[in-house]
Design a protein around this nucleic acid. Structure first.
Lengths: 106, 106
DNA sequence: ACTCAATTTCGAAAATTATGGAAATAGTGT
DNA sequence: ACACTATTTCCATAATTTTCGAAATTGAGT
């Protein structure tokens, strides 16, 4: 993973609304969630939500799939895993940070 | 870790210059690096660097320690580990993403 | 073609961030 | 106190991000 891409993903997650949005999608699991359903949970105008969602999609952290008129959104786990891997690599490049990663695994 | 704090840390890392800066500090290891040395590696004005550095310190990703006139900066591994743990927890809350975390461990 | 529902794009205002030169500060030695 | 170096703060400007109402679009059904 290139630094530029990692930075873009980190920036995408580095906004409380978007991080919350991402959390909601993670918790929705493989079924995903329609944009409208997410809007109900976040209670923000649809155009604002659409912009945030686009950011997450553009950076590869969320995928979308059409089902009739609704758009199903899903957290893109491989994308997140790549990011976590990048951070862990950066972090572990010189020091031992296995404990925390181990905790995440458990 | 609270969502707000995680978002602040992610935002701090979500800027190419700051991510690069953090990388440099990680690679410097436990000895840390003086602000001036970092400046030499990044080649940006000192005031700009100081602003970015402050962001990383404020969010708990970097620590500083005075040594005579120079300020030694160090990557704060526990801070990063907590962030990685948070992301992993969010990610793993509903799906299995052990493979990537395992990879980070290896 | 028309209508309805879901979602995005447009356009514009407010807020925040990024950048860096110049001045101020802090620390050490003389 | 003075000089010197390292770093930060002050200040302003440019750029980007956030926000959201209104209009446009997309897709399905009639």
């Amino acid at each position: 993973m290139k630094l530029e891409k990692a930075a873009a993903q980190l920036e995408a997650l580095g906004n409380p609304t978007r991080l919350q949005l991402y959390r909601i999608l993670v918790r929705a699991g493989d079924d995903g969630l329609a944009v409208g359903s997410v809007q109900g949970k976040l209670d923000i105008p649809s155009s604002t939500l659409s912009h945030h969602l686009k950011r997450l999609v553009d950076t590869g952290l969320v995928t979308q799939e059409r089902q009739a008129t609704t758009l199903i959104c899903r957290a893109n786990y491989p994308g997140m895993n790549a990011l976590i891997g990048y951070l862990a690599d950066e972090c572990c490049a010189d020091a031992t940070c296995a404990p925390a990663v181990g905790k995440a695994l458990a």
